[in-house]
Amino acid sequence: MNLKLTYVSSLIYPGISIGVEYPINHVTLSVLKNQILIKRISRDRFISGNLNWYHHAGFHDNLYLTAEWVMRRTRYTGLISEFSMGPGLSRTFVGGTTYKVDDQGNISIVKLAGYYYALITAGGGLGYDFSMKKQLPLSALAKLNIISMFPYNSTVYFRPVLELGIRYAPVRSKNMPDK
């Protein structure tokens, strides 16, 4: 199981994402030439669960849970490329005090004003696995996700989210080269 902590943002709007990854499948491909290893690639599949939040001042705060299918490829050099996608659930909190006026003209403040949306996220990115060359169970990652929320005003709301952070593998990675 891996743990993930990332800073998420789109343009200038900050956020954070924490998640866990459960390994489903692991394949290591080794290419030998004259009995000498010249290339090794690991292919991993994970299911991940993530809790994400971003703050867009004056618009909304968005707290969303996602469950993603992650496909990751790690080269012997430590370079990681990955793609992920999956469904989620979003709860937004509207970016300001929200008032409601009833038919008699009475005005009240709506507590925790916001909406639930279904969500789909898809993204891809690059990273570096420090366990390949050193004994560090960490990976760095940079990933661009597109989240789509619906039904948003009877249509779909798309938002690009840039994710920068680290991933921690408490158990010794299968990617680590044998000593």
Partner: peptide
């Protein structure tokens, strides 16, 4: 100041 007015399914 930013605020929202909720009415008929819209904020």
């Amino acid at each position: 100041d930013i605020f929202y007015v909720e009415n008929a399914d819209a904020s």
